[in-house]
């Protein structure tokens, strides 16, 4: 499965979801987007975004404030 990386570290609300939305539009179904971010609201926001947009959050990790979300494009 192919993957695209997106660096959102240092960006604040609402920029990570703006960038995710843009990046996901370019992807084919089945491709994953790995997003790294430091925004404190990133977890809540990415979860809400995935639910609203009918996509799939395959993993979420947080290592010392650097959060990594893997989103699979399913629709």
């Amino acid at each position: 499965m192919s993957n695209v990386d997106l660096d959102c570290k240092g960006l604040n609300c609402p920029m990570p979801i703006v960038k995710i939305s843009r990046a996901m539009k370019e992807l084919q179904t089945g491709v994953t987007l790995t997003v790294t971010a430091s925004d404190p609201s990133f977890k809540a926001d990415v979860e809400a975004w995935v639910r609203k947009m009918n996509q799939k959050l395959t993993s979420f990790t947080d290592t010392a404030g650097i959060q990594t979300a893997v989103i699979e494009k399913i629709s």
């Binding site: 609300c13 609402p14 979801i17 703006v18 947009m53």
Partner: peptide, 11 residues
């Protein structure tokens, strides 16, 4: 504008 841009990014 934050809400508007956020809403646009949520389709």
């Amino acid at each position: 504008f934050t809400i508007a841009v956020g809403a646009a990014s949520m389709g």
